[in-house]
């Protein structure tokens, strides 16, 4: 049903969502368990279905734990929209990339991962995540702002 590479892709996606290796493995396992509970005979792309299941499971769990709150509209209405070209121009070192991933919210990490690793377009991400394309573009803008702030912030001594 799924080969090693597909399971590893699911794991990397889970890692993007959770930010933690152990949590990512747990999430893949939960996704597989849920996958098996359903009739997947008519599912044409099992990996995409698994990733979607994992995503729903993860955000449902976050909601239950009330670790994410609803801030209506996320104030996205007043945020300019930028497409991925604005991120492609940015240059970072590995440490900055890692710090950026750590400071992002799960939905933002997911966005960055789907763009950089899976090669999705903004439209495809909007479809995958069930949000408007404008929301994705606004998140890109905020992410870019965060990265620029991170790069201009003075280095903290270890």
């Amino acid at each position: 049903m799924l080969d090693d590479e597909q399971l590893n892709r699911a794991y990397r996606y889970a890692l993007a969502l959770t930010g933690q290796r152990d949590d990512a493995h747990d999430l893949v396992q939960s996704g597989v368990t849920r996958l098996l509970e359903r009739d997947c005979a008519r599912v044409t792309d099992v990996l995409a279905y698994l990733m979607r299941t994992m995503r729903n499971f993860y955000f449902d769990a976050l909601r239950r734990q009330q670790r994410i709150e609803w801030s209506p509209m996320e104030n996205l209405e007043n945020v300019p929209a930028l497409d991925f070209r604005s991120l492609e121009q940015l240059v970072v070192d590995a440490d900055e990339a890692r710090r950026l991933m750590q400071m992002l919210e799960p939905a933002e990490r997911e966005l960055l991962y789907l763009w950089a690793v899976e090669g999705y377009t903004a439209e495809e991400i909007a479809q995958q995540c069930g949000v408007a394309r404008g929301t994705i573009l606004s998140r890109i803008f905020r992410m870019r702002q965060r990265l620029l702030a991170l790069q201009t912030a003075p280095a903290v001594a270890p």
Partner: peptide, 8 residues
């Protein structure tokens, strides 16, 4: 230093 996409 490398493009953000590559770094991710």
């Amino acid at each position: 230093r490398q493009p953000l996409k590559q770094a991710i």
